[in-house]
Simulated assay, not measured.
Amino acid sequence: MGKPDNALVIAPSGSRLLTAEDFRRLSDVPPEVEWFANLTNPQTRRAYQNAVEDFMRFTGIKKPEEFRDVTRAHVIAWRDDLGNRVLNGTTIRHRLSALSSLFDYLCDRNAVTHNPVKGVKRPKVDSGEGRTPALGDHQARELLDAPEGDRLKDKRDKAILATLLYHALRRDELCKLKVKDFKHERRGVPHLKVSGKGGKIRYVPLHPAASRLVYEYMEMAGHGHDDNGALFRPVSHNAKDNGGKSITADGVYKIVRTYSAQLGFEIGAHSLRATAATNALDHQADIAKVQEWLGHANITTTRIYDHRKTRPEDSPTFKVSY
């Protein structure tokens, strides 16, 4: 949403008192700016910022206070424009939800009398099936075998692919892993400590195949005793004295994209999460356990990975016998 003149001010480090000027500026912060400052999750913040900035461009809004003149007609016109840009229904719903969150906050602060997004018809959810493609078992095995060399990069990439495919982690979750998160044990079973969305922590049992590959990578990288450092690091920054910098989410995406493209099925990193979830469900994993494993707040989200009812081999077609 940009940074207006009266944006929130951070007091200097070590200072106990606000200056008179800082106190005045904080008193004048519009609730629209307060709302954005209260978004602490980086992913939510980025998505909501993109949505609201898109609405501001469409309507010509320049100042936070101008949101108070928005009517339902403005929101409907924006929704229709999003549809004309051939955005899918899920994306449009998410953008409307972001704008609605802003107006809910303004209502709470008595800055507006009602939320103009409420009552605006939203596109139907396309289907109960996920759009992210899942790999077949043979493709997953090919991907795991794709990094073939004995260089540090090969060891690291193989360990990353195995960690994603065997534990269904999100990219950001993998990037947050520290060395010590790989060393947990519960009831005698090695576990990964995963920091999920909303700061929620979950413990995921370590798959032996992935565990072996991660140990091989750490042994070559030499940072296995750097407990507070990142588990997966840029290849050129693996020394313990570099501060333990983590590989980025974009770096993980490029690893998956590069190896999958070489194999003829170019995919993103989230497809490995979909692959793991689908594979577990296909092999009769309890869906409630899969929900917990994935860190989903709602089991409805988990069901998009459950394709057991749509498998061709289970169709009544193959039960017909003459």
Rank of each mutant, 00 (worst) to 15 (best):
R57P: 00
L102G: 08
Y105C: 02
R45V: 01
L18A: 12
T113Y: 01
R151N: 12
D108P: 00
H167A: 07
V256L: 08
N238L: 02
G196Q: 06
E266M: 08
L192T: 03
G243R: 11
L82K: 05
R122C: 00
I61Y: 01
R45E: 15
V256P: 02
Y259C: 04
S27I: 00
D226G: 02
D286C: 09
P123L: 08
A269D: 06
R311Q: 14
P4M: 10
E185K: 12
R212C: 02
E185Q: 11
R212Q: 14
D104I: 09
T91K: 03
N279H: 15
F58S: 06
A288Q: 09
M56K: 12
D81E: 15
W78Q: 05
P312I: 13
M218A: 08
F103D: 04
R57H: 12
F67N: 03
D157A: 06
H184P: 00
A210W: 08
L144I: 11
T90Y: 10
F318Q: 10
A168D: 11
A239D: 13
N238F: 09
M1S: 12
N50D: 14
Y105E: 08
S246W: 01
I92G: 04
Q49H: 09
R79Q: 13
H184W: 11
H138E: 15
I247L: 15
S260L: 09
C107V: 15
D145P: 00
I287S: 10
V194W: 03
K158W: 01
K153G: 01
Y166I: 04
V189D: 03
N50V: 02
E266C: 09
I76C: 00
K121I: 10
T258F: 07
R72A: 13
P31K: 01
H207L: 01
V29L: 13
R95F: 03
Q139Y: 04
V194M: 04
Q291G: 04
Y259R: 05
R109M: 13
D314V: 00
T71Y: 02
D157V: 04
G243K: 12
D306A: 09
F67C: 03
L82A: 08
V9N: 03
H94K: 14
S97H: 02
L17W: 09
G251I: 04
Y48C: 04
L272A: 11
T310C: 00
P234Y: 13
G136Y: 14
P116A: 11
Q49V: 02
V70T: 14
C175V: 15
S260Y: 04
D181C: 04
Y203A: 04
H94G: 06
T91Y: 07
E142I: 00
A285E: 06
R186D: 06
V9R: 12
L144H: 09
T71I: 03
F265N: 10
F55W: 03
V290A: 03
G268Q: 08
I160H: 06
P12N: 02
H74Y: 02
I92R: 06
G128M: 07
R16G: 06
P12C: 05
T301H: 03
V117R: 08
A285F: 08
R170N: 08
T278G: 10
